[in-house]
Structure formats: C-alpha cells, structure tokens
Design a protein around this nucleic acid. Structure first.
Lengths: 197, 197
DNA sequence: CAGCTGACAGATTTCAATATCTGTCATTCC
DNA sequence: GGAATGACAGATATTGAAATCTGTCAGCTG
C-alpha cells in the first residue's frame, strides 16, 4: 500500500511482514501480501529471503530479541545479587505478561510463529539463561548464593519459573493470585540458592 | 460391534468411549460410534450422559483419577519427608512420561480432552497439590522443612516442577539431560524447603 | 548488469454442496 | 412403566472443484 521509492532492504521487508502479520494473523499473512504492502512484486521478496519460513523465522527472532535486550539492562544494575535476581525474574514475567495482555491477538500470532520455529526459541532461551547465569555467578562469587555450577543453577531457576514466562501458561497470567504464586516460587528458589547459614 | 445383552450402565458406556477414542482419536470419536460399539442406539447413550461434552468430561476425569490414585500410595510410605517428596515428584514425572511415551497417539487424544475440559483438570491439580501438601506438612511437623503455609509451599513446588508434569512440555520429556534437569530443580526446591541450618 | 518483474507449475487453501452428527422426543417394547 | 428406539431439525464436518499461494526463472528495465 506504500510504494516507497527507497531501496528494498531486508529490514524494510521485516517491518512490512510484522505489519502484515499484525493485520492478517499468522494463517493468512502471505508473501504476496508483504510484497503488496511494499509496492513490489513477490519475486523481490524472495531475493532477500529464500523461503517464507526463513522470513517468518527472521521476524520471530527480532521479536524475541527485543525482550532479551530489555532484560539485559537488569543483569548488571547496582543492587545486590538477590535483588537483581528478583528484579530480573519479575521483569521477565512483566514483559511476557504485558505482551500477552496488551494485544492478545498479536501475542497469539507470535505464539504460532514461535511454535513453528524451535531454533529461534532455543536461541532466545539460551540468551536468557546466559543472562541468568551471570546474575547467579555474581551472587556465588560474593558468597550470597551457593552454586557450584551457575549455568546449571540458572537453567533450574529458568525451568522452575516456566509458569511465569512460558507462553503455554499465558491464559493463567490474568488469574487472581498469580502474583502471590510468583512470589512464592521465587522465594523458594532464592532460599534454595542461598548460602547455608 | 459387541451387542452384549448386559444392561447398559454408565460404566460400560465409559469403557466403550475410551475404546472409541483410542481407535478414532478425539476429533472423529462420535456418540454414534460409541452406541454402535455397544450395540445400542445413540439415544440410549444420551439417557446416561446429557451431552457429548459431559461424556467426554467423565472419561477425562477417569483417566486423570487413575494417575492420582497411583501417586496417593507414595504420600504415606515409610521413608522420611525429603525422600518421600523426591519419590512423589519422581513418580509424577515417571507416570506422565510413560503415558506420553508409551502411546503418543493416545496421549495426544487425552491432551485434547484435558484442553477442552478445564474443570476436570482443575480438580486433578487440586488432588495432586493436596497430596503434596500432606507430604510437606508432615516434613514441617518433624522440623525437616520450613513451611509456614504448607498448602502454599505445595502449590509453589507443583508450579516449579511444571516442566516435568505439564503435558505442554511432553515433547521435551525424551530430550537427553532431562533427568539431570529434573534433579537440579528438585534439589533446589528441597534446599529451599529445608529448615535453616 | 544488478535488481526487479510477472508468468508459470505444483502445493495449499477456500468455499459451497453434501453427508454426518448431536440432542430431542413421540412411540415401541418388554 | 421404565428403558430403548429411530426419525427428525439444526449444527457440524467432509469433500472436491476452483482460487490462491509459494518458489522459480527467463526476460525486462534503468
């Protein structure tokens, strides 16, 4: 709909694809739609992305990366390890919950995208657990946490909090009492990580 | 296919329904199929179950209850609270993993049934957390665990181990390293529950 | 000549007609 | 007379023909 005369870049295609996905949903978003939105032929899109699947994967990666980048800021903020871990987990929960709550349809769209795309999700999770590992390793370094293997501890914490960040639980994120549940799990985990007294 | 002349009971209908679901899958299992399997008219089935949804719910409940009952045995076995908690969580994981692994198609069928049936699932989860509560309360009573609110602690433990019993993770239950992940999470939780040293 | 186009083959999706199913109930059967 | 039947209306699912989409590529365009 906007036949801009700028040169066609992968970036512009990704933006247009996001827009088409937002408008039409994952099932009806076609490469032809994306091309039309850019005012080019669909053959041109295939010059930048070999297949529709590759294009969708790129969009998915961008979306996931935006969350990772926001959280990265918390990893090295000023507070102590325990506060930082709490803040990071709370921020992860808040980020996912907002994505799901603010625009449920768009969230459903991206849930479909992530489902069809294990690789991008795997990298995203690796990203997140690596951030968690840094927080826990710092805590172990300063004697606040006991963690012989910080990476393993990070994975355990990540898995144990799945209920508060995994999309398959999204419908429960609006349930009353969910914040208490979150706090209960995080408290338990932090007690578990704590150095013996 | 088996026009037995026994009287038609709810029990017999449930058995036939399980069989039809096993054979045809959740999408194609019809009330007419169930009636045919019993050698009766479908009107007779409606005498015992008001709607198809009610029938499916009853089948779902039976299936879930079978798991609950198996686990109930562990709640009051001889060992100490920590071992009992470990054994119970491991048994829950093992039960679910076997259900998923032994007959993936049947598991997929019941996953559809549980998805369409929040109430039965809710009761099943209430059942399980109540068993967990008893274990944790016993541990708190003998000073092994610290748990001001055993029911809340039980819910936290149940949520934190979701990765190892929630059907939405079933595809990861065959991944290598899953046992180490399970142990890591359980260790962390048990450390978190432990009385301060 | 680098980038774009649009026609094309095969795969996939849509849509409307057709068939089946759900749930009811007047009637039949023991 | 209590349980079972089967015909029925409306809802849902299946099917196959037509439309659309994906991915390719020979040729156009600036």
């Amino acid at each position: 709909m906007a036949p801009t005369s700028e040169t066609l870049t992968a970036e512009r295609i990704l933006e247009a694809t996001e827009e088409v996905l937002r408008r039409h949903g994952p099932a009806k978003a076609t490469v032809v739609d994306v091309a039309r939105a850019l005012g080019v032929s669909h053959g041109s899109v295939y010059r930048h992305f070999r297949t529709k699947a590759v294009l969708r994967e790129a969009v998915t990666k961008r979306w996931l990366d935006r969350t990772s980048e926001r959280l990265a800021g918390i990893v090295s903020d000023g507070s102590g390890p325990e506060e930082r871990l709490r803040a990071w987990l709370a921020a992860l929960f808040a980020a996912k919950r907002h994505k799901a709550g603010d625009d449920p349809e768009l969230f459903a769209t991206y849930t479909v995208l992530t489902d069809e795309n294990g690789t991008a999700v795997g990298e995203h999770i690796a990203d997140l657990t690596s951030q968690l590992t840094r927080i826990i390793a710092a805590g172990a370094g300063s004697g606040i946490f006991t963690a012989p293997d910080p990476a393993a501890a990070a994975r355990a914490v990540f898995h144990a909090t799945g209920r508060f960040h995994d999309p398959c639980y999204a419908r429960e994120w609006t349930a009353p009492g969910i914040d208490e549940e979150f706090t209960a799990v995080v408290d338990l985990l932090i007690r578990g990580l704590g150095a013996p007294r």
